[in-house]
Design a protein around this nucleic acid. Structure first.
Lengths: 239, 239
DNA sequence: TGCCCTCTTTGCGCCGCGACAAATCCACGA
DNA sequence: TCGTGGATTTGTCGCGGCGCAAAGAGGGCA
C-alpha cells in the first residue's frame, strides 16, 4: 500500500465526492498519509478534536466507553470512510475512541486545513451533512432494533450488515475480513460475550456459520436473513 | 401566537444562527407559516422528503414504526428545533413520522426553496452538519444507555432530559409541559408501558414524582439523578 | 349529567439473558 | 519448544422485565 496519496484515492471518499480535479488536488495537498499499526489507538474519547481522518486501507473500530468501564462498539470503518470529522466541524470533544483493528493506512487533515478547504469548496460542507444524515439514519435503525428485537435477531442482522461491508468470499462461504471477538460482537448488539458464543455455537450446529478464534464465516446468509425477520415467538399456547 | 413570521423568530433557529439580517429576511420570505392542530400527522415515514420544518410553538413527536407495528419514539421537539430537514438535504425518504402532540405552529420551506437558500448562504450547510452532528452524539449516547443500563435508570435519565427541554416550574415541582402517556415513555426507553407504570408508582411512593393521566411532575430531580447514576446492584451475596 | 373510550394500575407466571464459574483451546513470544 | 495469557465454550442459577389478564379511573363528548 503506497504512502503517496493521489486524486483517485481521495475521489472515492464520500466527503469529497463531486469535487473537480483542482479541488481534489487541493485536498490531497493538505492531507498527511500515515500507517496505523494494528491495535493503535488513533483517537481518544474526550480529547479535543483536532484532526479529520479518512481510512485508505484496513479497518478502524469506533467505540464508546461508559463512565463505569462498559464498552459499546458503534461501527467498523473500511476504506473510503471518515471519522473524527464531525467533532472537528462542531468544535466538540471526541465522542468516541478509534482503534485500528488491523494494520491500516489513513490520510488525516489538521482542523485548520479542513476549515480552509471547506471555505474554498463549500460543497464539502453539504457532503458532510449528507454523511452525518446517513449515520443518523443508521443509528436510529440500530436504536430501534436494540429496543424491539431479541439478541439472536440483532446478531443475525449485524453479521449480515458486516458481510456487506467487509465480506470476503471463500470456499466455505463469506468471511468477515478482519478479526473480531465474541466480546466485540456483544458490544455491538448489546449482549454479553457468553450469549453471543452460545448463539454462534447453536448456529454452527445447524451449519449456518463456522467460527474460530476471532474469525467468522457465514455459510448460509439466507438462513441468517430468515432469523433476522423471524417474528417474536407466540408465547406458548399450551393449556 | 401570531402567524406572521419575522426575523426574531427565525434567528433563534439553530440552522440559521449566524446569518446576517438580509439573509434572515431572505429565509423568512421563502417560508410558510401554519398551525398544526393537536394529533395532526405532519410527516409520514417512508414518504419522499419535500419540505423542511421548524417548530415555532408547541411540541412535535418524532417516532419510527417497525415493520411489525412496534413504535420507537426518537425525540420530542420544541420551539426553535427543526425536522425533516436532513432527509431533504440527503434526498432520501423520510426516516420517521412527525406528529403534533399539542396545538402547534411551524414554519416550513419547500425543498427547492431550501436548496436555493443554501446555495445563496453556504453557512446554512455548515450549520446543518453541526446540527446533524449534535443529534448523532445524542443518539450514540442513547444507544449506549439502552444497551448498558436498566429500565429504571433509563427512565430516570429520560425524565431529567425532558425536564431540561420541556420543564415548567409549578408549586409541587417541575412538570413536563406536554401530555405524554406511559406507552410513549416506554417507547422512548425501550420498555413496556407496564414496567414504566410500575416504576413511576414506586417513585410516587417515595415522593420523587407525582403523576396522573398523561401528566408528570418531578418533585425531587436530585433523587432521579441519583437513580440514573446508581451502579448495577452487586448481585446479592447471601449464602 | 352520564356513557364510553383511552389511559393506568396491579397481579401472576414465565423466560431470555446476564452473572458467576471453570475448563479448555489456541496463538504468540521467549 | 514450551509456557502464558487472552479467547472461547459450556453449565448452573437467578432475576428483571415482558406477556397476559382484568379491574379501576379520568376526561371528553353527546
Amino acid at each position: 500500500m503506497p504512502l503517496t496519496p493521489d486524486r483517485s484515492l481521495i475521489a472515492k471518499i464520500d466527503l469529497f465526492s463531486g469535487l473537480d480535479a483542482d479541488a481534489l488536488d487541493d485536498v490531497v495537498r493538505r492531507g498527511h498519509t500515515r500507517r496505523l499499526p494494528k491495535d493503535m489507538q488513533v483517537l481518544v474519547q474526550g480529547d479535543p478534536a483536532t484532526t479529520c481522518h479518512a481510512v485508505i486501507d484496513g479497518r478502524i473500530k469506533i467505540s464508546q466507553t461508559t463512565p463505569d468501564g462498559g464498552q459499546v462498539v458503534l461501527r467498523y470503518l473500511g476504506p473510503g470512510e471518515m471519522y473524527g470529522t464531525l467533532a472537528v466541524l462542531m468544535g466538540i470533544p471526541l465522542p468516541a475512541d478509534a482503534i485500528a483493528v488491523v494494520d491500516s493506512v489513513e490520510i488525516y487533515w489538521p482542523a485548520a486545513a479542513m476549515a480552509d478547504l471547506i471555505e474554498r469548496h463549500p460543497k464539502i460542507a453539504l457532503a458532510s451533512s449528507r454523511l452525518a444524515g446517513g449515520r443518523l439514519v443508521d443509528l436510529q435503525t440500530r436504536l430501534r432494533e436494540v429496543t424491539t428485537e431479541r439478541v439472536e435477531q440483532r446478531l443475525a442482522r449485524t453479521l449480515l450488515r458486516m458481510l456487506g461491508q467487509a465480506g470476503r468470499r471463500t470456499a466455505e462461504g463469506v468471511e468477515i475480513d478482519f478479526p473480531i471477538t465474541r466480546q466485540e460482537l456483544g458490544e455491538m448488539i448489546g449482549a454479553t460475550l457468553h450469549t453471543v458464543s452460545r448463539t454462534l455455537s447453536a448456529w454452527e450446529e445447524h451449519g449456518i456459520v463456522e467460527s474460530s478464534r476471532r474469525r467468522i464465516v457465514v455459510r448460509d446468509p439466507d438462513a441468517l436473513a430468515a432469523i433476522a425477520e423471524e417474528p417474536r415467538p407466540p408465547a406458548a399456547a399450551a393449556p
